[in-house]
Design a protein around this nucleic acid. Structure first.
Length: 296
DNA sequence: CCGATTACCTGCACGC
DNA sequence: TGCGTGCAGGTAATCG
């Protein structure tokens, strides 16, 4: 489900509830998600105060007043929702620990929030590709985070850096952009969108965006700009809501209405002067959407 | 080492 | 209505 913009939206959505909250109790309703929960998962969290919420690529980080941060990954279908005690508990079931839980609610955090109200933050993940692990150090060192590439937020990623990262690579641009060790946070949707904005074919060999000797790095510059802009636009729109994905407050993101090519097979290319038709191809087992006319 | 494929899981849309 | 098939935003293990 969530690529970087969705995880950032989740982080911002949870922040008012979780930042400064004390963890009263943690329930896990099965032994594992993608991986087993860490040893003493609940006990380690209970009694702690959540100092702040961070994000690295598609990883959500809960910084605690003591001990290493909790690393959360939403996988394909993970989502958080917040319940306030008053509205969540059915009369007659007051304080019943299982009230209002739904299928695939795997983790329940009982929190005493800064405003002195008790709330529950519930992690739901039908496919269970998500996971929760403790970092081994503060701020957030973990094998899972080692080797992650540059964030496509901010200004660090520019044409020169992209050209260097992709230099000599024969692999298609689609695969190179999905490689989290190069750029961290892009997923299947935003790779298609960024390549359309850049006017570059997903099939083009990644190494060929580098400028020839003495030439300007036009392609690399265009691609870097496209990646940064699509990520920034998607964050600003609150991410994309597909299928069952919702923001933590229950509202939907808006960016799915602004897809130029993703899931638009057969539609005309939205580029004003282009007569192309959006085409779906499969690359390394996953759908890519692009316009074969204006993306070269 | 590299890149491509498969596995992990459930739900849903679709065709018959 | 039911059943089989394919597909879905993730990463990691395996294969050549």
């Amino acid at each position: 489900m969530p690529e970087l913009p969705e995880v950032e939206t989740v982080r911002r959505g949870l922040e008012p509830t979780m930042e400064g909250a004390k963890v009263l109790k943690v329930e896990t309703r099965r032994a594992n998600l993608r991986f087993p929960f860490p040893e003493r998962f609940a006990e380690t969290l209970e009694g702690r105060t959540i100092v702040s919420l961070g994000r690295r690529a598609k990883y959500l980080l809960l910084y605690l007043d003591q001990g290493p941060p909790l690393i959360c990954h939403l996988g394909m279908s993970g989502a958080f929702r917040v319940q306030t005690e008053d509205e969540s508990l059915t009369p007659g079931l007051f304080h019943h620990p299982r009230s209002k839980l739904e299928a695939h609610d795997h983790v329940v955090f009982h929190l005493l929030c800064r405003d002195d109200v008790t709330r529950r933050v519930i992690f739901n993940d039908p496919r269970r590709f998500g996971f929760m692990l403790f970092a081994t150090e503060v701020p957030a060192i973990h094998p899972m985070l080692d080797g992650l590439g540059v964030e496509p937020t901010g200004n660090a990623l520019d044409g020169a850096m992209l050209a260097t990262l992709f230099k000599g690579k024969q692999t298609p641009l689609k695969a190179a952009l999905l490689d989290q060790t190069l750029i961290a946070g892009l997923g299947n949707i935003y790779v298609s969108e960024a390549l359309w904005r850049a006017g570059l074919s997903p099939r083009r060999a990644a190494g060929t965006i580098a400028p020839a000797k003495g030439q300007s790095s036009l392609r690399a510059d265009r691609l870097a700009t496209a990646v940064r802009s699509v990520i920034a636009d998607a964050i600003e729109a609150g991410g994309s809501s597909l299928r069952d994905y919702r923001q933590a407050d229950g509202s939907e993101g808006n960016f799915q209405h602004r897809f130029s090519v993703y899931d638009r097979e057969g539609e005309p290319c939205p580029k004003p002067t282009c007569r192309g038709v959006i085409t779906r191809i499969v690359q390394s087992g996953r759908s890519t959407f692009y316009c074969p006319v204006c993306q070269r």
